[in-house]
Design a protein around this nucleic acid. Structure first.
Length: 752
DNA sequence: GAGCACTGC
C-alpha cells in the first residue's frame, strides 16, 4: 500500500516486527500528536527513530534542551502545528528555535512513515552544517543518517533514511527548479527569513503559491520579531484574509545598555578609535567589538588603536592593561579569522590591570560569526552595501547608514554572555528619524538576471505580477528580461528556449553559462570551463601591503597580453602543473584557497556539462585557441563591451555610454580599440576590471541582434562599428566575386 | 595606479 498524502494518515502501527510495547511511537497520529506522547518518547530508553537504546550522552543533552525557552512551549506549538498549514514564528537569539522546532515537527509530522522529509533552510553553509551536527547529536543519530544536511559540493544525506534535512536556501531553490511541487517534503521551514536573502525571498513566493496546490504541505517561516507582521500578512491565504498565526518564543539574552553621542560625529573612524580607547581606560574588563566597513579601514584602525593603546599603557601602567587588536573580514584566511577566539592578553605584571581584546570587524560579525565574551560594542552606524543601478546596469558597493534592525543586532552582540554596553556614534535623534527600519532586502538591490531565469524555469509565467514579498523595480526586471532575450535564453514572447533551460541548470550568471555552452563550437570548452570557474571564485591575487612590487612582478610573469581572461586560464593551468609544490601558490602571490575553490567549481560545472553532452574539447594551436576563447567570450558578454575614444586611454561603454578607465590591475600591454570586460566597478572613479581585447567583427558576427546598427545610438562607437561593417560587406562581395571567377583565393590560402 | 560588505547555486 502506498501512502496518499491527500488523505488523512493512519496512526503509526508497529512498522516492522516490533509490537506496541517496543515501538515508542505506537499510537502517534501524524500531525495530531500531543506533548505527553512526545515527552514520553523522548524520555524513553529506546530511540524512536533508530530503535537503538539511547546513549548516556543523549540523556545529558536532553536535560540541557529542556531548559531552552522553546521547550516549555512544546504543547502550544504542537497544537498550532496540528491546526494550521502555515505558521510564522519569531524567536530571538538563544531561544533554541533552530534546533528544537524541526525536531518537534518530526515527532508530530512523522515524515519517515511516509517517505518524506522535513527541510529547514539556512542562509549560510556553515550554519546548515553545524546545526545539523548539533541536532544529530540531540537525536542520538549519526550525522548523515536520519538527520543530515545538503549544501553546494556536499550532500550529507542518505536517501530513504534522512528525514530531517538542514540545507542552504539556495539549495532548496535549485531543487525546486527540477521539482516545482517539492514533493519530497512534508514540512518546509524557512529559518532566518528576516535576513531576506534573494533565495529566501523567492522561496517565500513559491511556497505561498505551492501551499494552495499542496494542502498537505506544512510551512513554517521563522524570523526575528520586527518582521513578523509583514510575513503574517503576506502568508494570509485563507478565504477571509486572516493573517497567518504567530508563534512567539522568548529569547535568552542579557540586557545591553545603549549610549548615543550628543552631536553627530564628523569622522566616524576617528570617533570609533577614540571610543575604543575610552572604554579601555575607563570601563570594567570585557572585550570590545568595533564595526567598520572594509578591509583597508579595519587594518588602518587596528594599527592606530594598537599604537595609542601601547602609549596609554606606558604612560600609566598602574591602571591601563595591555590590549590586542584583531581584524576580521571575510577575505582573511580562516587561520587568521580564528584569532578572534583567542583569549584577551594577561596582565603585563602579576596583579596588574587585566588585558583586553578588541575585534575590529565588518558586518561579518553581525550575523555570520559570533564571538563570545564581547561586553562592549562600538557602532559607528555604517556598512558597505551593494546597490544596483538598472539604468546603467552597474553593481557597486556604497558605504551607507545601517538600518535600525541592523543596529539592534549589533547591540545584541554585547549581551551574549553577560550584561553589556553599546556605544552608538550617532545621536538618538538620528537613530529615531534617519535610520530605515529594515535593510532593503537583497531583491531590491541586485541585478536579477539569474533570478529571472530561475523563475522562468520554475514555470512562473508573469514575472511582473509574481507575488513577491517586496516587488523589485520594474526596470530591474526589464533589464533582466532584455539580457536573457539577447542571450537567446528567452524568446521574444518571454518563453524559455531550449538553450535557456540548459543555462538555468548551471550555477552561473547567464552570460557565463552562455559562453560555456557555445564554447565547443570554438574548440575551447576545456579552457572556457576553467575561465568560468576562475571568474566564479574570489580574487586569486594576493598583494601584501609591504610586498606590492614583488606581488606585481609575480603577476606580470603570469600575464597574457591579450587579456585578463586568458591570464586567469594561465594561472589555473600553472597551478595544476605545480600542485605537488605546496608553496607554489604562496611563492607566486596567489591564494591557495581561491585556486582550490576554482578547482572544485570547475569539477561541478564539468559534471553539469556532461549531463547535457556538451563536449570538452581543445585545439593544439595556441593562437587559434586564444582566438576561439575570445570569440566565445563575445557570445556571452557582448553587452559588456567598451570602445576606446581618443588617445588618452578613455573608454566608453557601448550603448550605456559610461566613461570608464581600465582598472590598474588590468594586464593588457596596449590599449586595444575594443574590449570586453567582466565587471564595472565604481570606486574612486568608474573602472572596468578583468578585460580582454576583442575584434569588432566578432561582435557583429556573434551578436547581430545586439549590434543591429539601425537601433544603435549615434556617436563615435556607432561610426566605428559602421566602418567595420562596411569593410565586412565589401570583403563579402569581393569574396563572392572572387569565387565566381574561380578558386584563385582559396587555393592560395590552402598552399600556405 | 586601485582594493573584496556579506552570502548562495
Amino acid at each position: 500500500m502506498t501512502y496518499n498524502p491527500y488523505t488523512s494518515a493512519p496512526p503509526v502501527k508497529s512498522a516492522s516486527s516490533s509490537t506496541s510495547a517496543t515501538d515508542p511511537l505506537f499510537g502517534f497520529l501524524p500531525r495530531n500528536v500531543n506533548v505527553k506522547q512526545v515527552l514520553k518518547a523522548m524520555d524513553g530508553d529506546v530511540n524512536p527513530f533508530t530503535r537503538q537504546p539511547h546513549s548516556e550522552q543523549y540523556k545529558k543533552i536532553l536535560q540541557i534542551r529542556k531548559k531552552l525557552p522553546v521547550f516549555a512551549q512544546m504543547e502550544d506549538f504542537l497544537k498550532m502545528f496540528s491546526e494550521n498549514q502555515i505558521i510564522v514564528m519569531v524567536g530571538e537569539t538563544g531561544s533554541g528555535k533552530t534546533t528544537q522546532i524541526p525536531q518537534f515537527v518530526c515527532y508530530s509530522d512523522l515524515p519517515h512513515t511516509k517517505r518524506k522529509l522535513v527541510a529547514c533552510t539556512q542562509p549560510r553553509r556553515v550554519a546548515a552544517m553545524s546545526v545539523a551536527k548539533r541536532v544529530a547529536d540531540e537525536m542520538d543519530v549519526q550525522l548523515g543518517k536520519q538527520v543530515g544536511y545538503s549544501i553546494r559540493f556536499e550532500d550529507m544525506t542518505e536517501p530513504g533514511t534522512t528525514f530531517l534535512k538542514y540545507m542552504t536556501d539556495g539549495m532548496l531553490l535549485r531543487e525546486a527548479m527540477n521539482d516545482p511541487n517539492l514533493e519530497r517534503y512534508s514540512t518546509i521551514i524557512l529559518d532566518e527569513a528576516h535576513e531576506r536573502t534573494l533565495a529566501t525571498d523567492i522561496l517565500m513566493g513559491l511556497l505561498k503559491s505551492l501551499a494552495k496546490r499542496r494542502p498537505d504541505l506544512k510551512i513554517i517561516i521563522m524570523s526575528a520579531t520586527l518582521d513578523a507582521l509583514k510575513f503574517q500578512k503576506y502568508f494570509s491565504i485563507t478565504e477571509n484574509g486572516e493573517p497567518a498565526p504567530l508563534f512567539k518564543v522568548p529569547g535568552r539574552t542579557h540586557p545591553v545598555e545603549v549610549f548615543y553621542t550628543q552631536d553627530p560625529e564628523p569622522d566616524y573612524v576617528e570617533a570609533a578609535i577614540r571610543t575604543v580607547l575610552m572604554i579601555h581606560r575607563a570601563e570594567d574588563p570585557g572585550d570590545i567589538l568595533l564595526f567598520l566597513t572594509g578591509e583597508e579601514e579595519i587594518e588602518d584602525a587596528c594599527r592606530k588603536i594598537k599604537l595609542e593603546a601601547d602609549d596609554l599603557m606606558n604612560q600609566d601602567p598602574e591602571s591601563v592593561g595591555p590590549l590586542v587588536c584583531i581584524p576580521l573580514y571575510s577575505s582573511l584566511p580562516p587561520q587568521q579569522q580564528q584569532r578572534i577566539f583567542d583569549p584577551a592578553p594577561p596582565p603585563r605584571v602579576p596583579e596588574g590591570p587585566p588585558g583586553r581584546k578588541v575585534v575590529v570587524s565588518t558586518n561579518i560579525a553581525e550575523t555570520s560569526l559570533t564571538i563570545d565574551g564581547i561586553v562592549y560594542v562600538v557602532d559607528p552606524g555604517f556598512s558597505k552595501q551593494r546597490v544596483y543601478n538598472p539604468r546603467i546596469r552597474v553593481d557597486s558597493l556604497l558605504v551607507s547608514p545601517i538600518s535600525k534592525a541592523s543596529a539592534q543586532q549589533r547591540a545584541g552582540r554585547a549581551g551574549r554572555t553577560r550584561p553589556g554596553k553599546c556605544f552608538r556614534l550617532y545621536t538618538e535623534k538620528d537613530f529615531m528619524t534617519e535610520l530605515e527600519e529594515q535593510t532593503h532586502p537583497e531583491i531590491l538591490r541586485s541585478n536579477l538576471a539569474n533570478v529571472v531565469l530561475e523563475l522562468v524555469k520554475l514555470g512562473v509565467k508573469d514575472l511582473v505580477r509574481f507575488d513577491y514579498v517586496d516587488a523589485p523595480a520594474p526596470e530591474t526586471l526589464m533589464r533582466a528580461l532584455e539580457l536573457l532575450n539577447f542571450l537567446a535564453a528567452l524568446d521574444d514572447d518571454g518563453q524559455l528556449t531550449a538553450l535557456g533551460s540548459i543555462m538555468a541548470d548551471f550555477p552561473l550568471d547567464p552570460q557565463m553559462a552562455k559562453m560555456l555552452i557555445v564554447s565547443p563550437e570554438f574548440r575551447c570548452s576545456n579552457e572556457v570551463l576553467t575561465i568560468v570557474a576562475m571568474l566564479s571564485v574570489p580574487n586569486v591575487w594576493i598583494r601584501p601591503p609591504n610586498q606590492r612590487k614583488e606581488a606585481d612582478a609575480a603577476k606580470a610573469m603570469m600575464s597574457v597580453p591579450d587579456g585578463d581572461h586568458l591570464t586567469l586560464l594561465n594561472v589555473f593551468n600553472n597551478y595544476m602543473q605545480n600542485k605537488h609544490d605546496r608553496n607554489w601558490a604562496w611563492n607566486n602571490y596567489l591564494s591557495q584557497r581561491a585556486l582550490a575553490q576554482a578547482e572544485n567549481v570547475r569539477a561541478q560545472l564539468q559534471h553539469t556539462m556532461e549531463r547535457f553532452d556538451i563536449d570538452l574539447v581543445s585545439t593544439d594551436d595556441q593562437r587559434k585557441l586564444y582566438t576561439g576563447i575570445r570569440q566565445a567570450l563575445c557570445c556571452g558578454f557582448f553587452m559588456q563591451v567598451a570602445h576606446k575614444e581618443g588617445e588618452k586611454g578613455a573608454y566608453i561603454t557601448v550603448k550605456d555610454n559610461q566613461v570608464v578607465a581600465l582598472h590598474p590591475s588590468c594586464g593588457l600591454d596596449t590599449q586595444p580599440e575594443w574590449v570586453i570586460y567582466h565587471e564595472f566597478v565604481l570606486t574612486t572613479k568608474p573602472y572596468i576590471r578583468t578585460v580582454t581585447e576583442v575584434k569588432a567583427e566578432w561582435l557583429l558576427e556573434f551578436a547581430p541582434q545586439y549590434f543591429d546598427m539601425s537601433a544603435f545610438p549615434d556617436g563615435e562607437t556607432k561610426r566605428a562599428l559602421l566602418r567595420v561593417q562596411n569593410k565586412r560587406s565589401r570583403k563579402a562581395i569581393e569574396g563572392a566575386n572572387g569565387n565566381s571567377k574561380g578558386i584563385e583565393r582559396p587555393s592560395k590560402k590552402a598552399r600556405k
